[in-house]
């Protein structure tokens, strides 16, 4: 696909995605460390009490591999890995979406819009269908079934947002209310489709307050990830745009340049 302009700078965008993704992952990891780990510790203590009273002993086997503090560290590392990977997807999606328009056009709103779409597609919509489960919930025998359902939910979420984008493009000439209601309709319909998938087969044996706290924290972590990713990516885009504008201004004759400090 040779565009009508100079080649689209995919690699700078990729670099921006990695930087923004790494920052987002680290922020999310520290957020989780601070707020979610106390809840997970509570869940694990309850799990131990349960299995001590004679359930299956899976929890104990698992506990012995790593100490909790190593798993805290693992949370931060995992978050950074996830952030970097999501940053790559983000950058490539951004490049594909905007490859036909000038590189430095509206970097901030575009980054934030894509981050919002990513949050809906990969976090909020799948998260509403299959809410996160704290440690101690989750049957080893159903894990591959649940993984398939979860992947299906992620794919449906992404397809839904792609469809929403196409609808918005198709209705570009229409009035804003028509366009926005149609896009909202697609998002709601996507959520509806997600609920056609079979439910999570596992029993949830933890107290409702613990479950609620954990699920809110899980969604909050997702929100922190996408918000940081979009903001850093957008800010880097603004900086790149400002830098690109400089050399164009420099060769111009001097007199006008001094007035605007």
């Amino acid at each position: 696909m040779s565009g009508n302009t100079s080649p689209y700078p995919v690699l700078p965008l990729l670099g921006r995605g990695l930087l923004a993704g790494g920052a987002a992952g680290l922020t999310t990891g520290l957020f989780g460390l601070l707020f979610a780990e106390p809840v997970m510790d509570r869940a694990i203590r309850l799990e131990e009490e349960r299995s001590a009273g004679g359930g299956h002993d899976h929890a104990h086997e698992a506990e012995e591999l790593f100490s909790r503090s190593t798993q805290y560290f693992g949370l931060v590392v995992t978050s950074v890995v996830v952030g970097l990977a999501v940053g790559v997807f983000f950058a490539v999606a951004y490049a594909l979406l905007h490859r036909r328009s000038p590189v430095h056009e509206r970097p901030w709103p575009r980054a934030m819009a894509l981050a919002g779409a990513g949050f809906l597609a990969l976090s909020l919509l799948p998260g509403l269908r299959y809410p996160a489960a704290p440690p101690g919930v989750g049957d080893g025998d159903t894990v591959s079934e649940r993984q398939n359902l979860w992947l299906a939910a992620l794919v449906i979420g992404v397809l839904g947002m792609v469809l929403a984008h196409l609808v918005r493009q198709r209705l570009a000439g229409r009035a804003a209310p028509v366009r926005q209601l149609a896009v909202t309709g697609v998002v709601v319909a996507t959520l509806g489709v997600l609920f056609l998938l079979p439910g999570n087969p596992d029993e949830v044996l933890v107290p409702a307050t613990l479950l609620w706290d954990f699920r809110v924290l899980s969604l909050a972590s997702h929100a922190v990830l996408w918000a940081t990713l979009g903001a850093v990516f957008g800010a880097l885009g603004l900086r790149a745009a400002a830098r690109a504008a400089e050399p164009a201004a420099a060769p111009a004759p001097a007199p006008a340049a001094t007035s605007a400090g």
Partner: peptide, 19 residues
């Protein structure tokens, strides 16, 4: 099980199926 257990907390927090 090492990889699984090292990323254990992250899996739960991000909502990935775990056991």
């Amino acid at each position: 099980e090492y990889l699984h257990e090292f990323s254990h907390d992250g899996r739960h927090l991000f909502g990935a199926p775990c056991h």
